[in-house]
Nucleic acid binder design. Structure first.
Ligand SMILES: [Mn+2]
Ligand SMILES: [Mn+2]
Ligand SMILES: [Zn+2]
Ligand SMILES: [Zn+2]
Lengths: 148, 148
DNA sequence: ATGCAATTGCAAATCGTTTGCAACTGAAGT
DNA sequence: ACTTCAGTTGCAAACGATTTGCAATTGCAT
């Protein structure tokens, strides 16, 4: 098993450094986030947390998410319609394509688009702090169906 | 005064065509939308509507916005943080740059970015139904300050 | 082990938005 | 103009996601 070091940000360290206590519920939530491959919302994180420690409350999940967002450890996405969804921040920047039929979230990155955004902002006299690019679509039907 | 025909979508006609009654409150809301240069939210539209007809309710504003969105007469934007904001749909597609300090919404369009989005979706096996591109930034300080 | 500020779970509050319902009204027919 | 009735309204209550007050608990520095 060629096991390369998994990109697992050291959340606890990051938090301690930010002067935040590492409590029982936070440990649980942090571990869930660490190995979440998807983009779970607060309720989903709560459910996964309860499996590990039944004493955790949804409020704490919300509070922890806000705290993690505050220290820049996670990113919050407010995709069309649904509740906020989260993902670890320690990954390279990317944008999202949401499958309108399945709800699947596909990640992509275009350096060219990123550049163009900068260029546009610059021309308008602005510095971009952050941006949001979301494509909403459905699987192309017919011809050569690739993937899936 | 070289007065070119203003791009003022004929909302009433559009609605009648969609089998919708033109009521008093709707007339008011429609007129407000017709000459709104900004991207007002429901409450703002409600306030402007009350100025014209004090009997209008916020519920009706919400219901009308949903109806207009349904027939494709307006677009709904859910910018970061705030409530939904609306704008007439009868304008050419564009995306938005939000000034984080003032809340101002600046419109822009990049055919190049639109193309790249298509390209990306295509490669992933998707057809884009719609998308959302929002830049959040602040006025660039220093050097040659242009505008404002 | 002690002390205390940080954190928790719970319930209640909040915000933007939607909905049930009885009263009202647009507009089609006469 | 008068009737008719489904579409529409205002109001208040419900809603879903998220936040918050508070008393009890707990991390962690001493
Ligand atoms: Mn992602
Ligand atoms: Mn616009
Ligand atoms: Zn991006
Ligand atoms: Zn666009």
């Amino acid at each position: 098993m060629n096991q390369t070091t998994p990109i697992r940000p050291d959340y606890e360290g990051e938090l301690r450094k930010a002067g935040v206590r590492i409590t029982r519920p936070r440990k649980v939530i942090l571990s869930i986030l660490a190995d979440a491959g998807d983009h779970p919302d607060a309720l989903e994180i709560f459910k996964r947390a309860v499996e590990i420690d039944s004493g955790i409350s949804l409020s704490t999940v919300y509070r922890t998410m806000k705290l993690l967002e505050g220290v820049g450890a996670i990113h919050r996405h407010a995709f069309e319609g649904g509740p906020s969804r989260f993902e670890p921040a320690g990954v390279e920047h990317h944008d999202h394509l949401i499958d309108l039929d399945t709800g699947d979230v596909i990640e992509f990155h275009s350096e060219r688009i990123e550049e163009l955004q900068q260029e546009i902002a610059r021309e308008l006299g602005y510095d971009i702090v952050h941006h949001r690019l979301e494509l909403y679509g459905r699987r192309r039907r017919g011809k050569v169906s690739r993937g899936g």
